[in-house]
Nucleic acid binder design. Structure first.
Lengths: 132, 132
DNA sequence: GCTAGTGATATAGTTAACTATAACAGTATA
DNA sequence: TATACTGTTATAGTTAACTATATCACTAGC
């Protein structure tokens, strides 16, 4: 229904892939479950079905999902554990270092961000002393 | 020298913009300083100079940088404070919620993320219980 | 067999990102 | 003036992402 679904910082098909990954990790989609049909998703988010298919094919390539023509696409056995390993490694190696650097650069306190609510207002002044 | 400089998750010109922003925040580039010339950067990273220019133009549009034809591009007064405000807001509103959700989803512990190097090996078992 | 639901493939067009190459325009300095 | 730096504009081509439309292929249920 909403169309502010998409982030301009990443292609839609990858965001679709990430959305399904999140659902698997959150236990919303369990092993053996069918994932929302290509055509349904395409209609719901008003996106071309080829774009959805492309996102889903990524999951097939990652062995997370199996496609059964005429039936649908289904979560593979072991998908969640596979993800917990792979995504952790990817996150720690590729994303977190960058994010962590940004946090330090902005003078934000990691502890504040990690504990409690993410919405807490940072009342820090915007005046900081440069590094050297 | 290295050509593994670029992340496929974001266009080069935006990564170039972010790189300069980081240098300003880190105090490597101070107000009044010239930033590395379009052509130099293009040559060093083996990228088209138009791509570099596009990244730099973003900074001009953000009032962070001023262009002087024949001389170079220079960091504006107040650039750093402007950034500390704007980038904090952007980060907290757009990036952090997504990252935070990922962290929880992967069952990563704040201590793991904060201590020492981000490269520490996560020895957690890949077995977790789903949400519901 | 028919219908309605699945995924898959084919064709073609638009746009944004990036590229190569060339030329233009301003400034500093020898 | 000549040279060597700056940024800027113009032209044109490639690729990836996304789109629209249509068609094929398979499965389940009536």
């Amino acid at each position: 229904m909403m169309d502010r679904e998409w982030n301009d910082s990443q292609p839609i098909y990858r965001q679709l892939r990430d959305r399904v990954v999140a659902m698997i990790l959150d236990g919303v989609l369990k092993e053996g479950d069918p994932l929302p049909s290509v055509r349904n998703v395409a209609a719901e988010y008003r996106v071309n079905h080829l774009t959805v298919l492309k996102g889903y094919q990524q999951l097939v390539d990652e062995q997370l999902v199996e496609s059964k023509r005429g039936l649908g696409m289904f979560i593979n056995a072991g998908a969640r554990n596979l993800l917990l390993q792979g995504e952790r490694q990817k996150f720690l190696a590729e994303e977190w270092p960058r994010v962590r650097a940004t946090i330090q650069r902005l003078g934000l306190k990691p502890e504040e961000l990690l504990d409690g609510g993410a919405t807490r207002r940072s009342k820090q002044a915007a005046e900081e002393k440069p590094k050297p």
